[in-house]
């Protein structure tokens, strides 16, 4: 089994991971390995259809794809070793990472590790939704990666569940892909994001139904309809051919959980100290893994601060004792 070493390994090449890696190189850290399980660096913004990205970093309005290309180019220029198609399967207690690549199992030993594995939306199963289990039931992440990375659409007339900001992003992606959402459903009394946002789908002919809950999904192989509970309490069936579950982001914390690090049972994120360290102080957590409601730009900025902390840790300037903060 191939085994290599580095000073700092960063798990996840989204905006946060790219930022930390680039900054660490600028701070003079010799060998920084950025591990990305996808075959392209950039993370979620690669397939976010909406602008703007890059106001803070590049002082201009960029698409998500262009933004991540620029961040990746910066990291490469700074001398970061970016390893693509490399999945971390297990964290050891002293920074030993088990990896899987096309070459099979590998090991990487790092003095410090930063976990930047991001966040994902809560899927249908975890929401305990009633009904059949046909295909074309998905999250915004799946929808947008299909549309923007593969130029494919999974259905034509989906129902969008939720009204956080990401639900409107899903709506715009649908429109871009020639799909016409038949309704946007919000269980609460008002739209979760900016209230006036509801005007846009409404103007384009997609009703935004508040105080309305999803009762069941119908259809055998493909989605045929959804059953909704309207504010009056009566049930209504709406024909559709897909269901998009949006929002309710949770940290992608599995590696930390499986390694036995302390986890916040409410947010599913690793507990960290004032320096961003996990309960195993060889490991740091950053970005949406820690608080899954940040924009790409916020993760990028947090990454620059995090790099200084990791550097301080390498230089032996952080205390050995770990004390959880509520930050």
């Amino acid at each position: 089994m191939k085994s290599t070493q580095c000073q700092v390994a960063i798990i996840g090449a989204g905006p946060g991971g790219l930022s930390i890696a680039t900054e660490l190189k600028k701070l003079g850290v010799d060998h920084v390995a950025l591990l990305e399980r996808e075959s392209t660096a950039g993370g979620i913004p690669r397939h976010c259809g909406h602008s703007p990205f890059g106001m803070r970093e590049f002082r201009r309005v960029l698409s998500g794809a262009e933004y991540t290309r620029r961040l990746t180019a910066q990291a490469e220029k700074a001398g970061v070793e970016i390893r693509l198609a490399t999945t971390v399967t297990e964290l050891g207690q002293c920074g030993e990472l088990s990896l899987s690549t096309n070459e099979g199992r590998q090991q990487l030993k790092a003095e410090r590790v930063v976990i930047c594995s991001g966040a994902r939306e809560k899927p249908r199963a975890a929401r305990l939704v009633s009904g059949a289990r046909p295909q074309a039931v998905m999250t915004t992440g799946a929808l947008q990666s299909m549309i923007y990375l593969k130029q494919q659409r999974p259905c034509k007339r989906p129902v969008i569940i939720g009204s956080e900001m990401v639900a409107f992003s899903a709506f715009l992606s649908c429109r871009h892909a020639g799909m016409k959402p038949v309704a946007m459903i919000e269980a609460g009394p008002v739209v979760s994001w900016w209230r006036l946002a509801a005007l846009l789908p409404r103007l384009l002919g997609t009703p935004v139904l508040t105080n309305t809950s999803l009762e069941a999904i119908e259809g055998k192989d493909k989605v045929r309809a959804v059953m909704l509970k309207r504010p009056s309490g009566e049930l209504a069936t709406i024909d559709c051919d897909g269901v998009i579950f949006t929002g309710q982001f949770i940290g992608e914390s599995t590696l930390a959980t499986m390694a036995g690090f302390a986890i916040d049972t409410v947010t599913n994120s690793p507990l960290v100290d004032a320096y961003g360290r996990c309960s195993n102080i060889n490991y740091f957590a950053s970005g949406n893994l820690r608080y899954p409601l940040k924009t790409a730009g916020q993760c990028w900025r947090e990454g620059r601060d995090m790099a200084s902390l990791v550097k301080a840790s390498l230089d032996g300037k952080l205390p050995d004792r770990w004390a959880q903060t509520n930050a």
């Binding site: 397939h47 994902r120 939306e121 899927p123 249908r124 199963a125 975890a126 295909q135 998905m138 999250t139 992440g141 799946a142 990666s145 299909m146 990375l149 593969k150 494919q152 999974p154 192989d221 493909k222 992608e252």
Partner: peptide, 22 residues
């Protein structure tokens, strides 16, 4: 994740190979 990350890749790999396309 129930397909959050891999649905796009799968839909490409399965193109023209399933009775009901993804």
């Amino acid at each position: 994740c129930q397909g959050f990350y891999c649905s796009a890749e799968l839909s490409e790999m399965c193109a023209n190979r399933l009775q009901i396309p993804l």
